[in-house]
Design a protein around this nucleic acid. Structure first.
Lengths: 140, 140
DNA sequence: GTGTCATTTCGCCAAACGGCGAAATGTGTT
DNA sequence: AACACATTTCGCCGTTTGGCGAAATGACAC
């Protein structure tokens, strides 16, 4: 059905959601890690992840208080794999994506408990622009 | 740039525009032919075609009063070819697309001058649901 | 049970969007 | 120049969407 195509096409047509998919390409992430890199409100990230999940592009698991998301492995939407492949093949040299990756490396280097307590200020001081602070998260 | 990706991604995330691209895959079409198949207002089709053109997915030529659109041959947007390929590979069995193709064959069988004068009523009577009538167009 | 924490849902807001009719534009005919 | 025709642009309208803060929910610790 064209509506199925539309669902996943619309999910990948938003820049924030594309950035999330590119981050997840490096492996499973906790919501707060995505929140820190994208510098968006947790509510916003949660809404975006819900849209990606509904489109069959990502899967979720819970571990206590924490929610982890990863790129979909199972075929949940007939077009999901095609769109994921295309997103994966594109934007390899995009500056926004490159900056996100740089921040993600920093984020992964910080124990999540510290990251969640301090948000971006937990990262190397010279590494981050002045942006919103967020809530804590546990050790990975 | 991610904005370039976004432009073409958004252009292909609308069902009407996907239907237009699938119609154009069969060859160049005049605006009124697309209008007749999609049963949309000419203004709406024109707006959609403008978005596809801005995204580098289609090209236009004029012939007197008439405007023809075709899928882009030149690389006008770094992601256009990828998206066109994907749209081309998908929805092969979609009922909406199949119906559009059926109507297109009928539309192509009618001289454009007749088509433009009578709109859908120029098609075989048993072939079309009761829908809007549109303005005329010339012999192809 | 109470309080803390991470996430999700809800409601609001401004912006974007797809549809339409009307007006404007460009082309062709007389 | 006036008129007809095909298309495009404009403006309106209702709907959708991405952002946020606040409230709700679920998990954990005491």
């Amino acid at each position: 059905m064209i509506e199925t195509f539309e669902l996943v096409a619309k999910a990948t047509a938003d820049p924030s959601r594309v950035r999330i998919l590119k981050l997840l390409a490096a492996g499973e992430l906790c919501v707060c890690q995505i929140t820190t890199v994208l510098a968006l409100a947790p509510a916003t990230v949660s809404k975006h992840l819900a849209a990606l999940k509904a489109a069959g592009l990502v899967q979720q698991r819970r571990d206590g208080r924490w929610a982890y998301y990863r790129l979909a492995e199972r075929q949940l939407n007939p077009y999901a794999a095609r769109f994921l492949a295309m997103v994966g093949d594109c934007l390899g040299d995009d500056p926004t994506i490159a900056e996100d990756r740089r921040l993600l490396a920093l984020v992964r280097a910080v124990p999540l408990q510290v990251l969640c307590a301090q948000g971006r200020s937990a990262l190397s001081p010279a590494a981050t622009p002045t942006l919103r602070q967020d809530a804590p998260c546990p050790t990975e």
